[in-house]
Amino acid sequence: MSTTTGRAPIVEARDIHKHFGHLHVLKGVDLRVVEKELVFLIGPSGSGKSTLLRCLNRLEEPSSGSVTVDGIDMLDPKTDINKARQRIGMVFQSFNLYPHMTALGNVMLALRKVLGLGRAEAEAKAQAALDRVHLADRADHYPLQLSGGQQQRVAIARAIALEPRVMLFDEPTSALDPELVGGVLAVMRELREDGMTMVVVSHEMGFAKAAADRVVFMADGMIVESGLPAEIFADPKHERTRAFISQIERH
């Protein structure tokens, strides 16, 4: 399961630098994610995990470097960025559902307006996506009528309905009450079993140990080390990693 050689790379980021003014946030990051791989990204607050993730779908413009997703050069000005983003699903810490639309409406919007599907077809696809996150019966609920965990699962449905090649998760469970975390992780687990390629930023170490193919540790805008979950958690090579892991496990 952890042999990642030989499979096609879905995400290939090379030497990514990102500056915010004079703040140097990413200092030459390389990240390669192959098909069906689940890469877990950990690191202290402010180390640049979110920024890296957002550079992958160009929500943030890297200052230099290259990003290729599913063979598409994301930073080429000639690339149709809206088209390219259909292949990259993203899930946010704060869900970011559209409050004026039902769960079904949230999932349907991009199906209708980006893929250009007709109403019936979009509705069927949206309903199927909600079914995959076990919320088929909540289709006509508005976000404020749903729990945080349900909202996050609708957000996952909104992303997977577009049949992306890779899913990016930025702390998907950090805003949730502890009892709601399990439902979201279970859905992510199922996605993974269905063969979805995923990059996950999260502090859920139990999930990492159980589901990740590879754990990448970042600090100060650089990747310090990366390896199998067992290696990183039980026997980290770098002092920074060791300190971070033991600090997390104490919580």
């Binding site: 993203m90 704060s94 919007l109 991009a110 909104r158």
Partner: peptide
Amino acid sequence: AKGQWEAARSTGLGFVQTLGFVVLPQ
């Protein structure tokens, strides 16, 4: 919220579509 723009743009909606379907109604 900025997150509304980001969520919409991340699904491939363009600037004007995001403005019209997501931001303006709110």
